[in-house]
């Protein structure tokens, strides 16, 4: 399990997709994200796993399966 820190964003692409945007600008599509996580602009650290075998409509970047998260101070 790895940690990923960044900002939660809703991208208006393919009808809309929630992503974690890293400071580098890279997007991670959020898979199995709890509702509380999905707030535009939230600064968070997510513990999760990259799902290599997932297929998406969004195609915005790697799929990150969320196991848990914490807000950044």
């Amino acid at each position: 399990m790895q940690e990923y820190s960044g900002t939660i964003q809703f991208l208006d692409i393919e009808g809309g997709v929630w992503v974690l945007t890293l400071p580098s600008g890279e997007h991670y599509a959020l898979f199995r994200a709890p509702k509380e996580l999905l707030q535009e602009g939230l600064e968070v650290t997510i513990q999760g796993q990259i799902k290599e075998d997932m297929v998406t409509v969004a195609q915005v970047g790697p799929v990150l399966e969320v196991k848990s998260f914490r807000r950044q101070p």
């Binding site: 009808g15 898979f31 297929v55």
Partner: peptide, 14 residues
């Protein structure tokens, strides 16, 4: 249909 309500799906379904 191979992708779910959030637009995710497994390789095997596709």
């Amino acid at each position: 249909r191979v992708l779910d309500a959030n637009g995710f799906g497994s390789l095997s379904d596709v």
